[in-house]
């Protein structure tokens, strides 16, 4: 068991298990994510990457074990505006009638309680978030007029609008071209370094994680590796994940 240090830990997992039916999807996972970390979560399909994320976001409840956010048991955690979330794939409906600005302003909704209307401050923060992702000039466009990469930036802007301390991204670059991906990852790097945002990125792209992230988690039902990305490259799980040695050569060279 990891020693728990509540002072800097944003996310704490203590022996968390979760299963959809009887078969365990996640078994006995303990981990900590600290302020300023840039954590990449990798692992095979069905290994529990997205499940792990959903447990942190309370979209799923663990069967056993404790999940804490900012030192508070997730069952009692209230301050959800500290959490930013960029969901898997841009599953916004085709033709959803919403402008970029309307979409990003939703990130502020959690800050306002029920019945309360968005304020001037919300409008300003929305624009600031759009500026941060360099999408302000598109604010009146319908979201489906945008390219995949632009849509992804808008998603990030929505997460940024709530002024979170940590952002979770679930496979953000699926179906986006390589050039856009590169820009996107350097943008994430900037968020982590300049804005001191803690990032948790679930991805298939191992080379991204090993180059960009400060910590790597390899989950295949259990959390088999959690630590320095460079160390992971030397370990046995890397081969398990990649399957082929020649891919290893490529990944190392790029």
């Amino acid at each position: 068991m990891h020693p728990l240090n509540p002072s800097h830990a944003i996310v704490q997992f203590d022996r968390v298990c979760f299963s959809y039916t009887t078969e365990g999807v996640i078994k006995d996972v303990s981990l900590e994510i600290h302020k300023g970390d840039y954590v990449g979560i990798v692992g095979p399909n069905g290994g529990g990457k997205t499940t792990l994320l959903k447990l942190i976001l309370r979209l799923l409840q663990p069967n056993s074990g404790i999940v804490k956010l900012f030192g508070i048991d997730i069952k009692n955690f209230k301050d959800w505006s500290k959490i930013g979330y960029v969901p898997q794939k841009t599953y916004i409906e085709m033709n959803f009638p919403i402008t970029v600005e309307e979409f990003v302003s939703m990130g502020r909704y959690g800050k306002r309680g029920l019945f309360l209307f968005p304020t001037k401050e919300d409008a300003e923060k929305t624009r600031t978030a759009l500026k941060q992702v360099d999408m302000l000039k598109y604010k009146d466009r319908q979201i489906n007029d945008l390219s995949g990469g632009q849509q992804q930036r808008v998603f990030i802007a929505r997460a940024l609008a709530s002024e979170p301390e940590i952002i979770f991204l679930d496979e953000p670059m699926v179906g986006v071209d390589i050039k856009t991906q590169k820009q996107f990852y350097s943008f994430l790097q900037k968020l982590n370094k300049d804005l001191k945002l803690t990032l948790v990125l679930v991805t298939h792209e191992l080379d991204v994680v090993t180059h960009e992230a400060t910590k790597l988690g390899y989950i295949n039902r259990t959390l088999e590796y959690y630590g320095d990305p460079k160390g992971f490259l030397k370990g046995k799980y890397f081969y398990e994940l990649i399957g082929k040695k020649e891919v290893l050569a490529n990944a190392g060279a790029s």
Binding site: R58, W80, I98, G107, Y109, G110, R158
Partner: peptide, 13 residues
């Protein structure tokens, strides 16, 4: 309506 999951994460009931 737009994004039920993200709404939930943002604390919307």
């Amino acid at each position: 309506t737009v994004d039920e999951e993200a709404a939930k994460v943002n604390g919307i009931p």
